[in-house]
Design a protein around this nucleic acid. Structure first.
Lengths: 353, 353
DNA sequence: GTGAAAGCGCTAACAA
DNA sequence: TTGTTAGCGCTTTCAC
């Protein structure tokens, strides 16, 4: 149907090999006579020839395509978190001439197929970028390490220092410390935490929060630990927050500050607090996490910790492509800095009494 | 390196053809003796064989991959609009066993390559889903129509009744009418509009707004038409809205209601109005568009028009795969219903005087 | 039921 | 500088 190499060769009265050479050596690398080149190029134009990339991939043994594994369930794409990482990835891939194939971790759920890995080993991609690295179990990690030479991949957002795999992540520990310190300096000593019930990112954040409290010698009371999740939608998040905040603040010794695992949770909490009659930041300070677009839309605009999501995606892609180009197997493991963004949802701790 | 069909064949002492048959006819379609099947399956398991999908694509002439074209610039992925459509697409593709390749409209910007089309004609995908159909010029549309038999694609979000291409879109005209009617019934007669300066979706919405006003016999004053765009980020959006709203409401004859082209613009406007001392919905009612997650986080929660974004993506994917399976070329053009969601940002028009 | 062989469209030695 | 020839790994007639 479509024009093939052979068609062009025939038309230009040369061999397919020559056409192939002309097409590759646009930069004068390969020795081709000017006349032939003209003839071939003319044929290409006339026939509107486009190389079949599938065939090329097979012949070259390189697909020039990168597989990106996102968390189970496509709706997760709606989370700014994933979308922003993906944006970083795709900008780099595009700039370096790679195509992007999207996978979801549930995809390969056949009995014998260990999820992520089978996805990435169907010969359709040269390497993998795993945004959903929290979902990897030990066996899968081991498999990825084993295959690292043949099939490089980079984990995103998940600190895995004990592994030999590439990974890039945000320095969330520093982020949590910055948030807690900020509150501390405003005089807050009783700091509650909204954690993500689902998914390890939330619980890692929780560990970071506890470490940050400990660093300041503050108490981490379990009744100041409140579950929160976005899985059932924003309206549910707000409802739940309203209930939780009501409970927390009728508690005999309520906190004076709240550190949330992400901006949405923080904004929902603020909605909830308002219902309870608590005013932010007069009565309680709230710090979010991520500095999503919505932070600035909050009432009041949200103090939060900006995390390098786009940058994580971009760097991971760079690392992967570099590995692919150089064959270098030295694991690259990078922690990217976070930054505290102070807006209006935090203020001095209310005087006790 | 990796096990190939040949390896399995050798191991099972059969021909590659037989292995191929066993692998395809899992459902007992193809006549294979039970013994052979067992032997082959065992070999597959032992060698941990995974078919090379690139080779399969080449041999079969079908890649089982769909290309999705998103608006130029990967950061657009962060817009819930695009992400939600993409979620709908990928759920369907996944469910039906198709892979997804992501393209951005800027990708193929070589001199001779007409953007969208060349992207989709590199033999790597079986069909195209074009989210960024507004970017298509007439020539590209003509080309897509010409190729429709060989290379089917579906446009998303863009009404194109005069074309023979498949498309699915939201019934935004009805949405605009619903929004305006809602305001009208609350007594509003002076309704301003925040439109998207960039991109045709915004200007289509603007046309819809004007039609909706006309349907009610209301005046569409040009000084009630305010530009707004998200391109430069949320903070800029809010700043700009603050300025614009200030101006609009010191105007000698300010509107009593505002219909925004999307929820973010609406929320930013509410922020701006607050700065100006205007209270929503007491002094002015605001209607957003899309019913994004943030709508419910607004202060007050936003009245808005819910649009079927996920559904558009899902339906477009269904239509495409059906076309691919059936070879049917009847153009499918579907308008999906929108629904008004009344929350707390709208109320009765203030008494004049 | 099963195998031999041609071929999908392109690339890359190796010759010439 | 160019052509010939073998593949890349899988599928699919066509014989047996």
């Amino acid at each position: 149907m479509a024009t093939t190499l052979d068609g062009v060769a025939r038309h230009a009265r040369v061999s397919t090999a020559t056409v192939s050479r002309v097409l590759r050596g646009a930069n004068g690398e390969i020795p081709i006579s000017a006349a032939t080149r003209q003839r071939v190029l003319a044929a290409v134009r006339e026939l509107d020839y486009r190389p079949n990339l599938t065939a090329r991939s097979l012949a070259r043994g390189r697909t020039h395509t990168i597989g990106v594994v996102l968390p189970e369930g496509a709706m997760r794409l709606r989370r700014v978190y994933n979308a922003t990482i993906l944006a970083g990835i795709s900008d780099v891939l595009t700039a370096r001439g790679y195509a992007l194939a999207l996978y979801f971790s549930e995809f390969g759920r056949q009995p014998q197929a260990p999820g992520h890995i089978s996805l990435l080993q169907d010969g359709r991609v040269d390497g993998g970028l795993i945004v959903d690295s929290f979902a990897l179990d030990d066996e899968q990690i081991a498999a990825l390490e084993r295959e690292a030479g043949r099939f490089p991949c980079v984990l995103i957002g998940h600190r895995l220092p004990q592994s030999r795999l590439h990974w890039v992540a945000a320095d969330d520990r520093a982020g949590a410390i910055a948030a807690v310190d900020h509150l501390y300096q405003l005089g807050h000593r009783r700091i509650a935490h909204l954690y993500n019930r689902r998914g390890r990112p939330g619980s890692e954040r929780q560990a970071d929060y506890q470490e940050a409290l400990a660093a300041r010698g503050l108490e981490a009371r379990s009744d100041w630990l409140v579950a929160s999740e976005m899985a059932s939608g924003m309206a549910a998040l707000v409802d739940r927050a309203t209930r939780e905040m009501g409970e927390l603040w009728t508690h005999h010794e309520p906190p004076t500050a709240l550190f949330a695992w992400n901006d949405y949770a923080a904004l929902a909490a603020i909605q909830g607090l308002r219902q309870t009659g608590v005013v932010v930041p007069r009565d309680v300070s709230v710090v979010g996490y991520s500095d999503f677009d919505v932070a600035v839309l909050g009432q009041p605009p949200l103090t939060t910790v900006r995390t390098p999501l786009y940058e994580q995606g971009a760097l991971a892609a760079e690392v992967l492509l570099d590995t692919l180009d150089s064959g270098n197997a030295q694991p690259v493991q990078r922690l990217l800095p976070t930054v505290l963004v102070v807006r209006e949802s935090t203020g001095s701790a209310p005087q006790p009494g």
